[in-house]
Write a protein that binds this DNA or RNA. Structure first.
Length: 498
RNA sequence: GGGCGGGUAACAAAGCGGCUAUGUGGCGGACUGCAGAUCCGCAUACCUGGGUUCAAAUCCCAGCCCGCCCUCCA
């Protein structure tokens, strides 16, 4: 295995191998749960889902931890607005956000530690930082002293003297230097707070990630990830805290995901272009959304447009059509008497091997999903040719091809839903189809969606034989309105759910 | 001002010294009653100006644009 990973820390691709044999320890910054998860979150967590799946595909065990920030200014403000307890409020949104991600088809992380449940670990780390001389206490606040930490800026490639120019100090803060950041904030009335050696208060934002990643993964761990926007100051601060406290290297590889834009603009509430996962899923199949993200390499920023999603939906169709054709051929009883593979079969065997080789090569190159898709589509083309070369495809070979296709597709979060070939029997649809049967004078034996469709198609075949094109086209059009694609193939007419 | 990353055909998006990327769309052909699917073929590219090289979209220099971060942010 020669996985090369772009490390944001060194700004170059490096050969990846985990510290501990076959286990990859990965920490990804999670959500601040003050409102519904948006499609920017989706972009990031789909990217890490794919990274995780590929690592597993290559034989690693991945210990994937994603935190939940459930104590924060915005949460407190939002809870106050609605008149509820901040922690109850964030608990509700934690569930909603994680549910949304799950509904999108993102595999859950192995653990979602909450900030509110790990206060002792944070206090312990702050004490270590103070003991090592990297922080100071003022009026119940605790700050990290950036000037004491020489390596500060190593992740974002910035120099401290340059950073000071743009740094801000909020009124009421008691920082010694503008770059210093809060480790612990003194309690304010009406806000959640915990006892600490510095009086009641709550943790600063950055400390939770340092403390929880150290606690649950140990230092150093293999991969630390998050959105590109977190690189500075959040991740820089995480490094400073963890390394100042422990003296150990914090994370070995840093992965930053390119941020989603909407029609070329940054997504933000002020621009009014904020789209939640829930909203998007009312318009698009989760799989289309996931594939949309995967079509761009994780480091580049995808741009959301309706057209882009529509194009992806069509591409996905092409993938599914081949999957369905493979399923059909795979389930056929072998008719051939000779057991060996024909030269055409042999060629298809190489196509399958080629898919695996190219897919692996693409993903080994810093999870190059666009290249991986190219391999998949090349395989689609070869498969279609194999089906149509005049010789009946070999069912065992198709089973093998299907298995490979699905296995590889799964890494890209594809094919997680069964093929849409078997629609559900909802009563409205059944009644509509029955009405169509009456209109076209067709008798169905089974009052199911599939039975009615088959009957209508049989009726259409009769009409076609009698060259009654108006009737044949009418049936096709009516079924298309209901979302069924009708195709006349050399083996008869078939329907397919769209 | 400082830091980071980009500018590839109609659109999206790989490639990053010599080899058809790929997908959607367009055009033509095969198949078809038609449509669709599928296959075959075609067209439209590498921001600009220099340089290095036998050879540059790919390396170097300069310039012009664009995005993100430096304040909470995935």
């Amino acid at each position: 295995m020669t996985l090369e990973l772009y490390n944001s820390m060194t700004r170059s691709k490096e050969l990846f191998s985990p510290l501990h044999d076959k286990t990859v320890k990965m920490y990804v910054c999670g959500m601040t749960v003050y409102s519904d998860a948006h499609i920017g979150h989706a972009r990031t967590y789909v990217a890490f889902d794919i990274i995780r799946r590929y690592l597993e595909y290559t034989g690693y065990t991945v210990n994937y931890i994603q935190n939940v920030t459930d104590v924060d200014d915005k949460i407190i403000a939002a809870a106050k607005r609605e008149g509820s307890e901040p922690l109850a409020y964030s608990k509700r949104f934690t569930q909603r956000c994680l549910d949304d991600l799950a509904a999108l088809g993102v595999r859950p992380a192995d653990m979602y530690p909450k900030a509110s449940e790990n206060i002792p670990a944070m206090i312990a780390m702050i004490e270590q930082i103070l003991a090592n001389g990297y922080g100071y206490v003022t009026d119940g606040d605790v700050y990290f002293s950036v000037d004491r930490f020489d390596a500060y800026g190593k992740l974002s490639g910035q120099r401290r003297d340059e950073m000071k120019v743009g740094a801000r100090v909020e009124p009421g803060e008691h920082k010694h230097s503008p770059l210093d950041f809060a480790l612990w904030k003194a309690a304010k009335p009406g806000e959640p707070s915990w006892e600490s050696p510095w009086g009641r208060g709550r943790p600063g934002w950055h400390i939770e990630c340092s403390a929880m990643s150290s606690k649950y993964l140990g230092l150093p761990f293999d991969i630390h990830g998050g959105g590109m926007d977190l690189r500075f100051p959040h991740h820089e601060n995480e490094i400073a805290q963890a390394e100042a406290a422990t003296g150990k290297t914090f994370a070995r590889f840093w992965i930053h995901v390119g941020l989603l834009t909407i029609h070329g603009e940054k997504m933000s509430k002020s621009l009014g272009n904020f789209i939640t996962i829930r909203d998007l899923m009312t318009k698009w199949d989760p799989q289309v959304i996931r594939m949309f993200f995967a079509q761009a390499q994780y480091r580049s920023p995808p741009d959301y447009t309706e057209k882009a999603l529509g194009d992806v939906a069509k591409s996905l169709e092409r993938l599914y059509r081949v999957k369905e054709r493979l399923e059909t051929h795979a389930s056929v009883i072998e008719k051939r008497t000779t057991s060996g593979l024909s030269p055409i079969d042999q060629e298809y065997v190489s196509s399958i091997e080629c898919l695996v080789a190219e897919f692996t090569a693409a993903m080994d190159d810093d999870f190059n999903t666009p290249k991986a898709f190219a391999a998949l589509f090349e395989f689609v083309n070869k498969s279609n040719k194999y089906f149509e070369n005049g010789e009946a495809p070999s069912p065992p070979l198709c089973r093998r091809a299907l298995q490979t296709f699905v296995q590889v597709g799964n890494v890209l979060t594809l094919f997680q839903e069964p093929s849409a070939a078997q629609p559900k029997d909802d009563s409205v649809l059944v009644r509509t189809l029955e009405a169509l049967c009456l209109r076209y004078n067709v008798i169905a034996t089974e009052p199911t969606t599939a039975g009615l469709l088959d009957a209508l198609l049989a009726g259409r075949t009769v009409a076609r034989k009698q060259k009654q094109w108006a009737i044949a086209d009418g049936i096709r059009q009516d079924l298309e309105k209901l979302g069924f694609e009708i195709q006349d193939t050399d083996r008869g007419s078939v329907w397919r759910k769209r």
